[in-house]
Amino acid sequence: MDRAELVELLSPEGLRLLDGLPEWDAKADIVKTVADLRKQGHPPGLVATVLSQAKLRHRARAKFGPFASRMLFTEPGLEQATRLQVAALHAGRFARADVGHVADLGCGIGGDALAMAAIDLEVTAAEADEVTAAIAAYNLTPFPRVRVLHERAEQVALGGIGGAWLDPARRTTAGGTTTRLADAADYSPSLDFAFGLADRMAVGVKLGPGTDRDLIPEGAEAQWISVDGDVVELGVWFGQVARPGIGRAALVIRGDSAHELTAPADSEDAPAGPLGDYLYEPDGAIIRARLIGDLARTNGAWMLSPGIAYLTADTAFDSPFARGFRIVERMPADERQLRQALQARGIGTLEIKKRGIDVDPAALRTRLKLRGAERATLVLTREQGRHVALLVERL
């Protein structure tokens, strides 16, 4: 969205048209919808803009719930925006640390600032991109204690502000195409600037979950968060908002429940051993935080093979940090024999999970020529370095 499109969208006509549209339906006849709106006298540019916003609002419900229906978005802004459920956790850190005024530097469309303002924190939000800053201002209008600035993070005067939250831009948009930045040195603001603020105030920095661990400063708290099985972020915390004695944390959110595993540092992997009666797949946040060893030792499990994130045990255990499977049968590792074995069991629908094996599950599924009414789950991995194929059922 460019500046002219935003001005048109924020006009009384534009906002009335957007708010009057029915819920976005991907199956609807978009050509007919456009034609109908044009017949009503709306300019073609405005029609395109409001329909784009309607689509973004529909997608945004996954992150913002019902709030999305009264917010505005940009494509990259929505991509990087924090889920409201997780943003509330960020805000809670500052509130518990008695940081009453937070600078949201690089606020994007305002998702984190919204969560902070909702618990009555004072927020100074800054965004370098003019259109995105205007959208953030619109989204944060209901909160009188929020000030939105069209400024680069590095230019914001921080006097009297007790804490800072930064979500450095990790994508760049050119010619309508958004590209993820591979080099952390290209983030905006830079990590040197973000981490450097910790010398003067309480600081939290949101990064991608796959961020190079060597970039995490010594002494910071690093928390990986997964939501419904998807690892969504790495939060790096300093000062009052970092918890004493915690260097690594994995927060696992599923539905309305949340569970966390913490440690002073990376945990040592558990020893590898032979396959037990049960197989466990640790949550991605546990894997990213390198707390697999602690998870194994807590539950009497061990690694199936060094360096591969599967655990095994002789007795079943229930943990929010791992999905469990009962081993039904060892299958032949040879592809031809595996195909024959699956066909003999009438398995026509097969979920394939793999770790430590160089195979494309979709291509393998085609080559297996499955047929039959039965469903099954197959795990392809290594047991103490050797290839194994395991027929399993979820606990």
Rank of each mutant, 00 (worst) to 15 (best):
Arg70Tyr: 09
Gln80Ser: 08
Asn299Phe: 05
Ala198Phe: 00
Lys27Thr: 15
Leu56Thr: 01
Ser257Glu: 13
Arg336Gln: 15
Leu215Val: 02
Ala174Tyr: 12
Asp318Asn: 15
Leu368Lys: 06
Leu181Tyr: 03
Ala157Met: 11
Val31Pro: 09
Val328Met: 15
Asp192Cys: 12
Leu181Trp: 06
Leu191Gln: 05
Ala376Cys: 11
Arg96Gly: 09
Lys206Glu: 01
Glu23Thr: 12
Gln80Pro: 01
Gly45Cys: 13
Pro282Ser: 04
Leu251Val: 12
Tyr138Glu: 02
Ser69Gln: 14
Pro332Thr: 09
Asp129Gln: 11
His101Pro: 12
Phe73Gly: 04
Lys39Glu: 15
Thr172Asp: 14
Arg152Asp: 09
Thr173Phe: 08
Ala128His: 02
Ala95Val: 02
Asp129Thr: 05
Arg330Lys: 15
Glu79His: 13
Glu260Met: 15
Arg38Thr: 15
Ala184Asn: 09
Leu370Lys: 00
Leu395Asn: 10
Asp112Cys: 04
Ala220Val: 04
Arg345Tyr: 12
Gly108Ala: 08
Asn139Gly: 07
Met116Asn: 05
Phe321Gln: 04
Pro282Gln: 00
Leu158Lys: 06
Ala87Tyr: 07
Pro144Ile: 10
Leu10Asp: 03
Val50Asp: 01
Arg83Thr: 00
Leu234Gln: 06
Glu154Phe: 05
Arg371His: 14
Glu79Lys: 08
Ala88Met: 13
Arg355Thr: 08
Ala313Phe: 06
Ala185Arg: 14
Ile225Asp: 00
Gln337Thr: 12
Ala164Thr: 00
Asp129Phe: 02
Gln223Tyr: 05
Arg59Met: 13
Leu207Lys: 06
Leu17Lys: 03
Arg16Asn: 10
His90Phe: 03
Trp237Cys: 02
Trp302Pro: 04
Asp212His: 09
Asp2Thr: 07
Gly245Tyr: 13
Gly300Trp: 05
Trp165Asn: 06
Asp228Val: 10
Ala362Cys: 13
Asp334Ser: 02
Leu311Val: 03
Ile30Asp: 15
Val236Tyr: 00
Leu380Ser: 01
Arg375Asp: 10
Asp318Thr: 11
Pro142Gln: 12
Arg394Asn: 10
Val34Glu: 08
Val34Arg: 02
Ala87Asn: 07
Ser11Gly: 12
Arg323Pro: 03
Arg96Asp: 10
Arg336Thr: 12
Ala103Lys: 00
Leu338Ser: 03
Asp36Lys: 09
Glu221His: 00
Ala313Cys: 12
Ala194Thr: 07
Thr262Glu: 10
Pro189Ser: 05
Thr49Pro: 03
Gly273Ser: 06
Val131Thr: 07
Tyr280Thr: 01
Lys39Phe: 09
Val328His: 15
Trp237Tyr: 08
Thr312Asp: 06
Met1Thr: 01
Leu105Tyr: 02
Ala26Asn: 14
Thr381Ala: 08
Ile287Lys: 08
Pro66Phe: 06
Ala133Arg: 02
Arg365Ile: 03
Asp199Trp: 07
Arg93Lys: 14
Glu151Asn: 10
Leu197His: 06
Met71Asp: 07
Lys353Pro: 05
Pro144Lys: 11
Gln337Arg: 14
Ala91Ile: 05
Glu130Gln: 12
Glu383Trp: 04
Ser319Leu: 01
His150Asp: 05
Pro332Asn: 10
Ala174Gly: 14
Leu364Met: 11
Leu6Met: 08
Leu121Thr: 02
Ala184Phe: 08
Ala313Thr: 03
Ser69Arg: 11
Glu281Ala: 01
Glu5Arg: 09
Met303Glu: 08
Pro142Cys: 11
Arg38Ser: 15
Ile347Asn: 03
Ala153Asp: 04
